[in-house]
């Protein structure tokens, strides 16, 4: 379904969506992030990238799995805690971040479906916004199969045409939202469609960064496991969790018991984000660590994204949002690393 929504009608539409929990990018001090908002008057089309992607809503940093307590009958009682049942809408999703969720879906489905992830995923509607201008200097979505107007994973894609939005509804869920306020929308004219095509074509030209010949990289990486390349590339890495926590596709986690009282026993089992750059991530109880240094941990990050994930799901585990580059405390640039991988030994 394709529609036109004037900027004036935008808030009228949003008011009709009251029953949903609504998230949109919000600026606090100088930082943009997705927050729950009451009335999203208007989405600013030129906001830079949010620090965290909508991953933080679908796969929150802390998820309570279950509660446990001592009980007289069986000695122990375990209660499953599932996320609250409440449909949500995320406005202003960058196309890359929506694509990221389609990649993460692969991990959380399969033989063992993750009930927490899917509960949140299924009750969330993603409304994207075309990146008319790149939200970051380090965007490289085109290199990894995305684009500034990619529709993957979105329910609706909005494109800013100055005084109005071009609305492309892509799923049943999207259609439903539009049908809730039919009178807010107009039919697109031929001119609108032309404007849309122009803007979307132009949005691609503005992506300046790219990884050339990326298709060669997975195979190349396969032969580079035991090379000194990783020692050199990781010299400046400080082993923080920024690249992975900010990455919209990184999904690694930890599970821990948080005890409120030890006698009588009472507590929660929670999932929290974890990441492959922390030394304790793979350390055995014995003290043995299969990834003992930062070279092996940087290698894991790159290989997971550009080799293992490709072998498993035929897609890079990267959407080119550029967060890991922009926010790396020591300027490690994944594009540069991959360029070097491609040219290694040539």
């Amino acid at each position: 379904m394709e529609k036109i929504l004037t900027k004036k009608s935008f808030s009228k539409w949003v008011k009709k969506l009251e029953s949903y929990k609504i998230y949109a990018p919000v600026k606090n001090d100088d930082l943009w992030n997705y927050e729950i908002i009451d009335i999203p008057e208007s989405i600013q089309p030129d906001y830079p990238n949010t620090v965290l992607s909508p991953k933080k809503i679908i796969f929150p940093q802390r998820e309570i799995f279950l509660e446990f307590k001592a009980s007289n009958e069986e000695g122990l009682e375990v209660k499953e805690i599932l996320p609250e049942e409440r449909p949500a809408i995320i406005f202003g999703v960058r196309p890359c971040d929506a694509r990221a969720l389609t990649l993460t879906d692969n991990v959380f489905k399969g033989d063992f479906e993750d009930p927490y992830y899917w509960k949140r995923r299924n009750q969330t509607i993603l409304i994207g916004l075309t990146c008319n201008i790149p939200p970051s200097f380090d965007c490289f979505c085109l290199s990894v199969g995305g684009s500034p107007h990619s529709k993957d994973g979105l329910d609706i894609l909005m494109t800013d045409l100055e005084d109005k939005y071009y609305i492309e509804s892509l799923t049943k869920k999207g259609n439903q939202l539009i049908n809730l306020a039919k009178d807010c929308f107009e039919e697109p004219k031929v001119m609108d469609k032309k404007d849309l095509e122009k803007i979307q074509a132009n949005s691609e030209i503005q992506i300046k960064r790219q990884i050339k010949d990326i298709k060669k990289i997975p195979k190349k990486l396969k032969g580079m496991f035991d090379t000194p390349f990783w020692d050199k590339e990781s010299l400046s890495c400080i082993q923080c969790g920024i690249c992975t926590y900010l990455c919209p596709t990184c999904h690694c986690f930890d599970i821990n018991d948080e005890v409120a009282s030890s006698a009588p026993l009472k507590g929660k089992r929670v999932r929290t984000w974890d990441n492959c750059q922390f030394p304790d991530f793979t350390m055995h109880s014995s003290g043995h660590n299969p990834r003992p240094d930062k070279a092996s941990r940087l290698r894991q990050r790159i290989l997971h994204k550009f080799q293992y994930f490709v072998e498993l799901y035929e897609n890079f585990q990267c959407v080119g949002c550029g967060r890991c580059i922009s926010k790396c405390p020591v300027g490690i640039d994944i594009i540069e690393v991959l360029d070097k991988v491609r040219d290694y030994g040539l």
């Binding site: 063992f112 986690f253 974890d274 793979t282 055995h284 072998e311």
Partner: peptide
Amino acid sequence: VENKMKCGIGKCGRCNIGK
């Protein structure tokens, strides 16, 4: 093979050797 594990179901990401 033995590695550190948390989820046991191939999602938490720490016990992999290759894919």
